Computed example of a mutant assay.
Amino acid sequence: MSDQTPASQSVVAPPSAVNAARRFVAEHGKTGRAVVQYLGRKGARVTMVGEDGALGDVVVKDVATGEAVVAAVEGLELTGWDRETTAQVRIGPAHRHRMAGR
């Protein structure tokens, strides 16, 4: 049995992930960018970048579900880690300390 969803089946975005993404966009601007990344067995991560440069994420079961989450949120654009997306990210000292394990 394959882990991939057949093209004939539509993917349903989990309401909890959609709500979290909507809250993120509302708190960090009216629009945002989202990058869906495959995590292996754990699923996929939807990393969001708000208008203000804040980062947020949700983890879902697979890439198709992540793309469905992005499609369900008004103002959220599916993109990759391109120049515009990375330039929009603003990482503050608190985030850098947390990522360094401090």
Rank of each mutant, 00 (worst) to 15 (best):
Q9Y: 11
D82H: 12
V63P: 01
T31W: 08
A20S: 14
Q4N: 10
T79C: 06
R22K: 15
A7F: 08
V89K: 10
G29F: 06
A94K: 13
P93K: 12
T31N: 14
V49C: 03
A34Q: 03
G75C: 09
A87N: 15
G32W: 02
L39A: 14
V73K: 03
R90N: 13
R45E: 15
R83S: 12
T31G: 04
Y38T: 09
R22C: 05
M48C: 07
L55K: 14
G75D: 11
E74N: 14
V35G: 07
R102Q: 13
A71P: 06
A64K: 15
H95Y: 05
V58N: 00
T79D: 13
G29V: 08
R23N: 15
P14N: 11
V89H: 07
T31I: 03
R96D: 13
T79Y: 05
A17V: 00
G56L: 08
T79I: 04
M48V: 07
A34S: 06
H95A: 15
T86Q: 12
P14S: 10
R41Q: 11
A71Y: 00
N19Q: 14
V11P: 02
Q88E: 13
V70C: 02
D82A: 11
A64E: 07
E74Y: 07
H95R: 14
A26E: 15
Q37H: 08
L76G: 03
L76K: 01
A94H: 06
V58T: 05
G75Q: 07
D57L: 07
D52V: 07
S10D: 10
D3V: 07
A68P: 09
V70I: 11
G50K: 08
A68V: 08
A72S: 15
A71T: 11
R33M: 07
M99F: 11
V12T: 15
N19C: 04
A13Y: 02
V73H: 02
V89M: 15
G43E: 01
E74L: 06
A20C: 05
M48S: 04
M48D: 10
D57E: 14
L55Q: 12
E77I: 09
Q88P: 05
G101S: 12
R23S: 15
A20I: 03
T85N: 07
F24W: 03
S10P: 04
V60Y: 00
R41Y: 01
S16Y: 06
A34F: 01
A68W: 00
V63H: 10
V36H: 02
S16D: 15
A100H: 03
A87S: 14
G40Q: 11
A72T: 07
H97M: 13
T5W: 10
A71M: 05
R33V: 00
V63G: 05
Q4D: 13
S10F: 06
I91L: 14
R45F: 01
S10I: 08
M48A: 05
E84V: 13
